[in-house]
Design a protein around this nucleic acid. Structure first.
Lengths: 237, 237
DNA sequence: TCTTGTTGACTTGTATGGAAGAATGCAAGA
DNA sequence: TCTTGCATTCTTCCATACAAGTCAACAAGA
């Protein structure tokens, strides 16, 4: 099953080339247009995009640091499989951090923040009916807003950087997750923040983030080739 | 005040060059041998280490991603100042994650883990008297051991990766922090883990990690040129 | 049949040349 | 004195050539 999500692979010859190549290749990997195991070759991609090897090579360095590809010197360069342990522990880190963020917000109970969040909830309910793709973006926005409201923009950037593996899963499972329930959970988090019920708000957020991996075993079963080191015992922690 | 910590800048001409250049430059920046604002030039460093510009350039890419240098195209490349907000929020992330790790350990109350940790505490008390440099390494080991015991090695690698900024502070303040008190705090964390007192263990760890920035205002005062965006109001959160 | 050695076609790593943007100094002119 | 324009000299960015490791196919020999 190939996901034909739109991938923007045009680029501007006058602007800096490397960042554009990076954006394109990263997007192709995360959206599974380049599935795990795909061999990437510097000269091959250079021909394909009509640039020299250098920008491709610099892109490889960045993608390798992100864990999206693995460069084996003098051998070859491959798109990595989605590492199951990495996905699980990314989720663990994210839960820990977002729990503390929500705790801060619930202690403060800032009315302006709550109003902004309620607006977003409205939007989420609207797009939930139409486009799941749009919903992903709304969801990202919701969590980012929480972090920013707590004054943790930089911390949130960290979290985003370790989400590339989780994003790959997300695009695999596009259309499987229970959108309405997620909106419901978001709503409860906002409610508790407004009522300044700290432990309840934290618990609601933790529950919400644990759901992210609820369907994981099924997703893995449907796309076994995409995953590495799958171990059902690791699910709970 | 220049810290004359040993920096190993030898390298093996037969092994791959780029990783060695990366290690050397990264170490020089973190140990403040290349202070913030230092201009780095590809051809200059290439001459200095007798390699071509290419490995230097690839190293620049990695250091820039880590936030240790900033590359301004066609202008110049500089060692960044220590970003105060980044340090604060790195600490915030670290506290959130380590709190959850300790919670897991305290719930489990694994005797083998406790024994290993007690051995390390002995070591910490020993080196506390002699070398503060060795103590830093023991401290790193202690926290890493906690993460690994909870089965969160990958999460810990992530934490380490965002520690580069905090490490720079650490090397600035080398010799200022109250070693005995830190060992004392470690001990309390281990005690609570053994007794399976979850909230107490978590609280002890949070207190311990908040101390990391206790001296920060003073360190900033003593090394103003090394810091950016210092704001005392950000200390508490 | 199996093993071994050679060859050649890949791969990424490194070196180097030149292009283009940006900063600096200085001279010419108002 | 101040401004403007130009030449010089930096910088990083991109292209390309070569070096060296690896692998696969295949032929020669036991």
């Amino acid at each position: 099953m190939v996901h034909q999500l739109f991938i923007d692979d045009r680029f501007d010859r006058d602007a800096a080339i490397t960042p554009q190549i990076y954006r394109i290749l990263r997007e192709r990997i995360i959206k599974n247009n380049l599935p795990p195991g795909t061999k990437l070759s510097e000269p091959e991609l250079a021909r394909q995009y009509e640039v020299s090897r250098q920008p491709i090579r610099e892109t490889f360095i960045k993608l390798a640091e992100e864990g999206l590809i693995i460069v084996r010197p003098q051998r070859k360069t491959l798109v990595t499989k989605i590492d199951f342990k990495t996905v699980m522990q990314s989720r663990f880190v994210r839960e820990a951090v977002e729990a503390d963020i929500v705790a801060l917000l619930a202690e403060a109970g800032d009315g302006d923040v709550v109003r902004e969040l309620r607006d977003q909830l409205q939007n989420q309910r609207k797009v939930a009916q139409s486009s799941r793709f749009d919903f992903i973006n709304e969801d990202l926005k919701f969590h980012r807003t929480l972090a920013e409201a707590a004054g943790k923009e930089i911390a949130w950037k960290f979290i985003e950087s370790l989400n590339s593996q989780m994003d790959r899963v997300r695009f695999l499972s596009l259309g499987q997750f229970p959108v309405d329930q997620l909106v419901e959970e978001h709503t409860r988090v906002v409610d508790y923040i407004e009522q300044q019920k700290v432990p309840e708000a934290v618990a609601a957020m933790r529950t919400h983030l644990q759901r992210l991996i609820g369907d994981l075993p099924q997703i893995v079963r449907e796309h076994e080739d995409f995953f590495d080191r799958f171990d059902p015992d690791l699910i709970d922690t």
